[in-house]
Write a protein that binds this DNA or RNA. Sequence first.
DNA 1: TTTT
DNA 2: TTTT
Lengths: 145, 145, 145, 145
Amino acid sequence: MANSLNKVMLIGHLGDEVKMHYFEGGNCIGRFPVATNESYSNRQTGEKVTTTEWHNVVVRNKLAELCEKYLSKGDRVFIEGKIKTRQWEQEGVKRYSTEIHALDMTFLTTKKDLNNPVPSNTTEPIENKTTSAPPLSDAADDLPF
Amino acid sequence: MANSLNKVMLIGHLGDEVKMHYFEGGNCIGRFPVATNESYSNRQTGEKVTTTEWHNVVVRNKLAELCEKYLSKGDRVFIEGKIKTRQWEQEGVKRYSTEIHALDMTFLTTKKDLNNPVPSNTTEPIENKTTSAPPLSDAADDLPF
Amino acid sequence: MANSLNKVMLIGHLGDEVKMHYFEGGNCIGRFPVATNESYSNRQTGEKVTTTEWHNVVVRNKLAELCEKYLSKGDRVFIEGKIKTRQWEQEGVKRYSTEIHALDMTFLTTKKDLNNPVPSNTTEPIENKTTSAPPLSDAADDLPF
Amino acid sequence: MANSLNKVMLIGHLGDEVKMHYFEGGNCIGRFPVATNESYSNRQTGEKVTTTEWHNVVVRNKLAELCEKYLSKGDRVFIEGKIKTRQWEQEGVKRYSTEIHALDMTFLTTKKDLNNPVPSNTTEPIENKTTSAPPLSDAADDLPF
DNA sequence: TTTT
DNA sequence: TTTT
């Protein structure tokens, strides 16, 4: 039983495909961006403004594989998870990246299985081009989550 | 009615005092860090590890003033809010800072009002007189266990 | 991964002690009422009104034992769980009881361990007087929760 | 700022159409049942069991009108609200009905506007045939609210 | 930088 | 970079 609470709940759309990373021990991690929107009326002009917030979602192992299999860019999901901020140094400057580590999820639209069961090699064609690797990806094996 | 959800809920302790900023139009903003902890057992060594996550909490106007008045470093709070990531450029490099914009809050310990004003023996004087049982307790008796 | 969500989060105070029930297989269940309050201003009179909502909280096994050990009437808790409505017939009339099945919890005040480590036999003296038993108690062993 | 929390979040499907009630002052209320499901494996037999939980959702005024306009039986919604238990006496017996008072909502499928912009008189053609009625629907009719 |  |  925890003595603190770190809970995030999102409903939004994937801005890109799920990018998978496989580790030696058999673990894997998936990453994808999720957009949430907020609308409000500008006080002066009265015009409606929509702002978009982007969330870096991280999933692991079984959940990651389900996401890769069933989620595509544009799909809507409900995500329950927690906030984690990674930090690293780049050229002497501390940098931070905040991620949403998803623990539970509900697929709210799954184009893939509904429209057409596409051959898996055509859905994520350039999955391997992940040039800029996130700092912690190597260490992921001995992380708590 | 929104078509997306961006919800954060935290229970944690303030790592520092509330820092206020006042704007010309009469608006104000308060900022303070909140720590949440997570414990897990290391798979190899079996030893218990506690990690701390720090959240940059932002409050506005009335809520900010309440926080400044009643919250101190070390106090425990429940926070409901949303995630916002600000970005800016520093020396040509995009930098990000993720904040929790608090919309509702519950003070779970407020040292300020507990420690000084009232003598502690007058705060819960008749704690034992809870004569009136909660509505459902009677019904509960004749319920399935 | 669920395709639906049934989530409850409460912060409130216990209206009574935790009542334990032990089953043959070694399982146990604890029950206690939790009060949440809501204040609003009456539109006509402008006077502030506070209403109290009572929640029938149910905990199982390990969590139940922790609750019995550390929670007392008046203590404040954070509860995360789900809603379950049981139904049964009484004299030909369908009756319902809605419960909050707690899955996670944070103790926000624990008078017991802070003030005095009272001998457990003095805290819940009449724990065994659970006279009226019920529909679901037998089935409890093979229930989902 | 509240000193307690009474929060419910649901993702589920409507078990019936939205039933509206209009009051003299211009206020209105809408009611509809929402089902959430949970699956688990029976420990003995190992077979997968799905249980359904029915929630009595209550909406007011603007939100009620949006629900009536855009939601139909079978639609999926995300609901954020609070738990309220009403009590009344029937033939000398105290009876309880627990409702989810929705404060915010996200329509996750809206068959009405997506499939065909049906003329409003054809949208609830067989409203009275409620064969598989959710538990509380009968009781709800003759309740206070 | 908090807390247990 | 999503979606309405």
